[in-house]
Amino acid sequence: MVKVLLWGSLRAHTDGQAEIEVQARTFKEVLDRLAEAHPGLRPQIERGVSMAIDGRVYREAWFTPIRPDSEVVVMPYMQGG
């Protein structure tokens, strides 16, 4: 199981939980499991999110591996200028 930290405004769709545990080995599996467990998250996930894995921010890297002890933070999709 991987602990996934969500940004605050997503907690409205997870019964107030800031941290969710999911069975996942990759970036994509984290998002798939989150959307299955908490369908309210699906619109945001489909619009796009970033994910910090052990401090490195990924934007669309489906197959980035995640270890059970990885620090995983779901963040808004990053955009720059």
């Binding site: 930290l5 940004w7 910090a52 052990d54 401090g55 490195r56 921010v57 620090e71 933070v73 963040m75």
Partner: peptide, 10 residues
């Protein structure tokens, strides 16, 4: 440091 937006800085 745990950043104000979530991840721990490298």
């Amino acid at each position: 440091t745990k950043s104000s937006y979530g991840p721990v800085f490298d």
